[in-house]
Design a protein around this nucleic acid. Structure first.
Length: 796
DNA sequence: GGCATTTTCTTTTTT
DNA sequence: AGAAAATGCC
C-alpha cells in the first residue's frame, strides 16, 4: 500500500522524514497518531529499518498497545516488532537487566505512591518529625522535585539552608533514599532517574541501547520532564545533557502540542518542546493544524479560549468539518441539578442513537464525580469512572500482591510488615517492633531476622505464629517458577484470605465485592500468563540481550508486579463495553468522544484555587479546559453551578473566568446561564448583571422557561424541536419502558418516548451495536441503537 | 494482641 | 459525608 496516498502535504512530510530530528507540532485531532504509525511503517517499508531498532514512547500503556496493534497491521509481522511502551515501562524493562550496575538487585520492586508515602512516613517517624505539622505528601513533592533535577540529599540540604521546611525535607529525603536502597525498591521517579544515571555512567549500557534503538519516537513531548528529556538525549546518541553538543544526526521524532501541556505540576517542562529546535539544531518542524475531529463551532470555542494564553506559540487551527451545534454553556442551581441534567442529557443522546461509549463526562477533581454517578445510576445508564479507585490500589489487592512482592524481593520490609499479620495471625505491633529492632541492630532485613529468633524476647504464641508464617512463605517460594495465576491462587488459599474478608466486612455485599476483586486478580494473573509480553514492555527474554539474559525479565511474576504497578488511569478503560465514561480532565488527554460534558466550570475549581495565583498555573488550567473541549467530536456542553457542597458546607460559586473568554458566536447559554449572561458584558463581570430578559434563542427552544433542571438538551442530529420535547417525555408510552424492545422487524409499528409513533424501516448490526432505522410520523427518520432506544411495540 | 469507639482529615491533577 | 487513623478498653 502507498503509505502517503491519503495524507495531506504536512502529514506526508512528517511520515516520509527518515533521518535527523523531527518535531511534529500537532494540534488536537490533527491525525497525529496516524502520522506516527504511518511513519514507523514508512521507516520499515521504505527506509528498510528493522522494527526492533525502533522505539516508540507513548503516554499510557493503552496507547502503546494500540500503537503496537496499528503498526502490526501496516508492516509484515515477520520483520520483528517495534518496542512500544511508556517511559516508565521502558525503564522498568531495562533496569531489570542493568540495574545491578548501580548496586540495586535486579529483583527490585516498584513502589507505587502509597508505598513511597509509607516510606516517607517511616522516615518522618524516625527523624521525629511531626506528621501533624507537615503532611508526608508535602515532603514527597519536594523529594520528587529534587530527584527530577538530579539533586542529591547533600545538595538539597545546602540548597535549603535557612528554610525550615526544606531543610527538614532534605533530611527526610536522605533517609528515604536509604530506606529504598535497603529495601531494594524504586519509586516512579527512580525508574527514570536510575536509568539516566546508568546511561550516563556506563558506556557499555548506553552503547547497547543506542545501537538497539536507532529511531526514537516520543509522543506527548510537551509533557516530558527533565529526566525523560535526558533519557531521550542519551538514547539518541547525543550523549550528554550539554545542550551545546552537536545533535543534528539524532534520529529522534517528537510529537506534541504546547497548548496541551497539563502536567507542569508534576515536573513536566513545556520548555522541552519549545526548545526542541535549539536542542536539535537541524530539526525539521512540521505543523499539523487541520483538525479532523471536531465541528467548526467546537474548534472555534476551544481556539478562542486558548488564544487567551499569553505564553504561547500561535497556531491556526481549522477544520473542514461541518459547522455543528453551538457549544452549550449551562448554569444550574447546585451540583445535584447539574448532575441530573447531565445524566438526562446522556440518556437523551443514547435514546437518539449515540452509543454510551461515545459519551464522556469530565471534571477537574475526582470529588465531583459522586453526584454525577448517582444521577447516572438513577437514569439506569451504564457508566465507568476511569481511574478513580484503582483496582490495584484496593486494600485486598495490595494485601495479596504484598505476598508476591515479599517473594519477589525478600528485602521489601514494607510489604513484610503489611502481610505479616494479614490475615491476623497473632503477630501484633509489639512483636513487629521487636523484629524491627533486631533487624536494625543486625543490619539485615526483617525476613532475615525471622531465620534466627533465638535471642529475641517474644511471647511463645507469637513465636509459633512467626514460625508458621515463615513456613508458609517457604512453601510459596517453591512455586515461584510456575504460572503467576497459580501462585496468586495459592496465596489466597494458604492465607484463607476469603474467610478473612468475610470476617472483616460483615456486610454481605461488601465482602462479596472484595472477594470478587481477589478472584479477579487471579483472572488478571491468568491473563498475564497467557500473554504477558503483550501487557508489559514486550521485551521477551533472550532477544539479543545476550547469553546472560535473566529469566526474571519477563514472564515471571516480577513482570506481573511491574505490570500492576505501572498501569495508568486510562489503561482501565476497556474498549467494547457500552458505558458512559467519567474521568478527570487530566485522564481525558489523548481520548476522543462524540459528546463531551464538562462539569464544575467554576472559579476555584477550574481554574483550581491551588493553581490560579500564578500566570503559569492559570495558563495550565486554561490548557486543561482546552484539552477537555477538544476531545469532543460533535457535541460539547460546559456546566457550572451556583452552589456546591464541599466538606460539609454549601458555598456560593462564581463562574469560571474561562467561560467569559469563549467566543460568543460559538456558544449558546442555556437555562439560568442565559439569563445571567444575557447582557453580554454582565457575563464578563461575573454575577454583576441584574437578572434580565431571557435570551431569545432560549425562548425559541422551549415552550416554558422553567428552572435549570429541565434545560433543553437536544441531540446532535435533531433540530431544536427535539430538544424542546426531550424535557418532557410523553406521559403515555404504549408499553412500559422496562428494557425496550429487543426484536423488532422491518415494517413493524413502534412507539418511542421522545419521537412518538413510527415504522421500522431497517435493522443493522448485531448484539449491543444493533441499530434500527425508524421512520417516525412526526419526527422524520432516525437511526437508533436498539438496546437503549426504549422502543415499545405500538398497539396498532 | 484484638477490637470497638472516637477523632481527624479530606479535595487538585498522576506515571 | 465518609474514610482513615488514633485512642481506649477488654
Amino acid at each position: 500500500m502507498n503509505l502517503l496516498a491519503d495524507l495531506t502535504d504536512a502529514q506526508a512530510e512528517a511520515v516520509s522524514h527518515v533521518d535527523g530530528p523531527l518535531l511534529v507540532v500537532a494540534g488536537p485531532g490533527s491525525g497525529k497518531t496516524r502520522v506516527i504509525t504511518r511513519r514507523v511503517a514508512y521507516l520499515v517499508d521504505v527506509a528498510a529499518v528493522a522494527p526492533r531498532n525502533i522505539l516508540a514512547i507513548t503516554f499510557t500503556n493503552k496507547a502503546a498497545a494500540e500503537m503496537r496493534g496499528r503498526i502490526e497491521q501496516l508492516i509484515d509481522p515477520d520483520a520483528g516488532r517495534a518496542f512500544c511502551s511508556t517511559f516508565h515501562s521502558f525503564c522498568a524493562t531495562f533496569l531489570r537487566r542493568f540495574i545491578d550496575r548501580i548496586g540495586f538487585g535486579r529483583d527490585f520492586v516498584i513502589f507505587d505512591r502509597s508505598d513511597s508515602l509509607a516510606c516517607i512516613k517511616e522516615a518522618m517517624d524516625e527523624l521525629r518529625i511531626d506528621a501533624q505539622q507537615w503532611r508526608p505528601a508535602a515532603f514527597g513533592a519536594a523529594i520528587a522535585a529534587w530527584k527530577d533535577r538530579f539533586v542529591d540529599p547533600d545538595e538539597a540540604e545546602r540548597e535549603s539552608a535557612g528554610d525550615y521546611f526544606a531543610s527538614r525535607a532534605a533530611k527526610v529525603y536522605a533517609y528515604y533514599l536509604e530506606l529504598l536502597r535497603q529495601r531494594n525498591g524504586l519509586d516512579f521517579d527512580d525508574l527514570l532517574v536510575h536509568m539516566v544515571r546508568i546511561l550516563k555512567d556506563h558506556d557499555e549500557v548506553r552503547e547497547t541501547l543506542q545501537y538497539r534503538f536507532q529511531y526514537i519516537l516520543i509522543d506527548e513531548y510537551q509533557d516530558t520532564n527533565h529526566a525523560q528529556y535526558l533519557l531521550a538525549r542519551y538514547l539518541t546518541g547525543v550523549g550528554s545533557d550539554d545542550r551545546s553538543l552537536p545533535s543534528g544526526l539524532a534520529n529522534i521524532c517528537v510529537t506534541g502540542d504546547p497548548d496541551q501541556s497539563i502536567y507542569g505540576w508534576r515536573g513536566a517542562d513545556i520548555g522541552n518542546i519549545l526548545r526542541f529546535e535549539e536542542d536539535f539544531p537541524s530539526a525539521r518542524v512540521v505543523k499539523l493544524e487541520q483538525n479532523y475531529r471536531s465541528t467548526k463551532l467546537i474548534l472555534a470555542a476551544a481556539d478562542g479560549l486558548i488564544r487567551h494564553n499569553r505564553d504561547r506559540k500561535e497556531k491556526d487551527l481549522f477544520t473542514d468539518n461541518v459547522q455543528g451545534r453551538a457549544v452549550e454553556v449551562c448554569l444550574f442551581e447546585d451540583e445535584y441539578t447539574e448532575a441530573r441534567a447531565m445524566a438526562s442529557r446522556a440518556a437523551d443522546l443514547v435514546a437518539m442513537g449515540t452509543l454510551p461509549s461515545e459519551i464522556a463526562i469530565f471534571y477537574r477533581v475526582n470529588a465531583l464525580s459522586r453526584p454525577i454517578e448517582q444521577a447516572l445510576w438513577e437514569q439506569r445508564l451504564p457508566y465507568v469512572v476511569v481511574g478513580a479507585l484503582e483496582f490495584y490500589a484496593r486494600r485486598e489487592i495490595k494485601d495479596i500482591l504484598g505476598y508476591l512482592r515479599v517473594l519477589a524481593n525478600p528485602r521489601d520490609d514494607g510489604s513484610v510488615v503489611r502481610v505479616i499479620n494479614t490475615p491476623t495471625r497473632g503477630i501484633g505491633k509489639v512483636t513487629v517492633e521487636r523484629l524491627r529492632g533486631a533487624a536494625r541492630e543486625r543490619g539485615v532485613s526483617l525476613l532475615e531476622v525471622l531465620d534466627d529468633l533465638s535471642d529475641l524476647k517474644i511471647p511463645k504464641t507469637a513465636r509459633a505464629s512467626l514460625g508458621r508464617f515463615r513456613g508458609m512463605l517457604e512453601e510459596l517460594r517453591a512455586r515461584k517458577g510456575g504460572p503467576v495465576a497459580d501462585l496468586v491462587a495459592r496465596v489466597i488459599q494458604a492465607t484463607d484470605y476469603e474467610a478473612y474478608l468475610e470476617k472483616c466486612y460483615p456486610e454481605q455485599e461488601e465482602h462479596e465485592d472484595r472477594i470478587g476483586n481477589v478472584r479477579q486478580l487471579v483472572a488478571a494473573a491468568r491473563h498475564y500468563d497467557d500473554q504477558g509480553a503483550e501487557l508489559g514492555g514486550d521485551e521477551s527474554p533472550g532477544d539479543g540481550s545476550g547469553p546472560d539474559a535473566p529469566s526474571v525479565v519477563r514472564g515471571g511474576f516480577a513482570g506481573f508486579l511491574d505490570y500492576t504497578s505501572l498501569l495508568s488511569e486510562q489503561d482501565a478503560l476497556e474498549d467494547g463495553t457500552e458505558k458512559v465514561s467519567l474521568m478527570t480532565l487530566h485522564t481525558a488527554k489523548g481520548l476522543e468522544f462524540d459528546h463531551v460534558l464538562i462539569a464544575g466550570i467554576e472559579d476555584g475549581t477550574l481554574p483550581h484555587s491551588r493553581s490560579k495565583d500564578t500566570d503559569s498555573g492559570l495558563e495550565e488550567e486554561r490548557r486543561l479546559l482546552f484539552v477537555g473541549m477538544t476531545r469532543a467530536r460533535k457535541g460539547l456542553c460546559l456546566t457550572y453551578a451556583r452552589w456546591r457542597t464541599r466538606y460539609r458546607e454549601t458555598e456560593r460559586r462564581i463562574p469560571s473566568p474561562f467561560l467569559a473568554e469563549l467566543p460568543d458566536e460559538a456558544i449558546k447559554r442555556l437555562g439560568a446561564a442565559a439569563r445571567v449572561a444575557s447582557a453580554g458584558a454582565a457575563a464578563r463581570a461575573g454575577w454583576g448583571g441584574r437578572r434580565a430578559i431571557p435570551a431569545r434563542d432560549e425562548l425559541d427552544q422551549r415552550s416554558e422557561v422553567d428552572d435549570d433542571e429541565s434545560f433543553a438538551f437536544g441531540a446532535n442530529s435533531g433540530g431544536a424541536a427535539d430538544a424542546a420535547e426531550s424535557a418532557k417525555p410523553d406521559p403515555e408510552p404504549a408499553d412500559d419502558d422496562g428494557g425496550g424492545l429487543d426484536v423488532p422487524k422491518p415494517g413493524e409499528r413502534v412507539y418511542h418516548q421522545l419521537f412518538g409513533a413510527g415504522i421500522v424501516k431497517e435493522i443493522s448490526g448485531r448484539g449491543a451495536a444493533q441499530r434500527v432505522v425508524v421512520v417516525f410520523d412526526t419526527h422524520g427518520v432516525k437511526k437508533l441503537v436498539l438496546q437503549y432506544a426504549k422502543l415499545a411495540r405500538s398497539r396498532r
